[in-house]
Write a protein that binds this DNA or RNA. Structure first.
Length: 135
DNA sequence: GCCAACGTTGGC
DNA sequence: GCCAACGTTGGC
């Protein structure tokens, strides 16, 4: 199983909305690097749900429910979307400030490639964030 | 195919 | 609101 991190601005699509929907269509990605990661996702992979701009913290965990398919919001048909299912919230959200000061996490893509909206997470990083998040 | 200009993202 | 990073566009 692989691990990922997806970003969303709470003003556009928040964790609360993800929880209410149960399964969301993760579309609208228009960056080739991010799209490459979407294509690499397999059913059952897990991803952290990160709030950018407001909050700046990892708030929950989702699971890939449907692998990459053509993004219905993309007229050019070049980009893809996936479906993400709500798994569970982090009892204690892990903030960007925490990540930056943590020895294991300070080199995460989240810190180094701040603009990448879909990114891979290593098992070490995954376990560390879960521990900090109270799981 | 190079590169400057421009737009967008996202942290501060 | 500012600015750094970086992707995209368009002239050459």
């Amino acid at each position: 199983m692989k691990y990922w991190l997806v970003k969303s601005e709470p003003g556009t699509f928040s964790w609360d909305q993800q929880v209410k929907k149960g399964v969301s269509s993760w579309d609208g990605v228009r960056n080739h690097a991010a799209a490459g990661h979407l294509r690499a996702m397999k059913c059952g992979d897990r991803a952290f749900f990160y709030h950018s701009n407001e909050g700046k913290e990892i708030v929950g965990i989702v699971e890939v429910a449907k692998e990459a398919y053509p993004d219905p919001t993309d007229a050019t048909r070049k980009f893809v979307a996936v479906d993400l299912k709500t798994l569970k919230p982090l009892p204690k959200p892990v903030t960007l400030a925490q990540i930056k000061t943590d020895k294991t996490l300070k080199d995460m893509a989240l810190v180094r490639l701040s603009r990448l909206s879909v990114q891979p997470v290593t098992p070490e990083e995954w376990n560390r964030v879960c521990a900090l998040g109270g799981i």
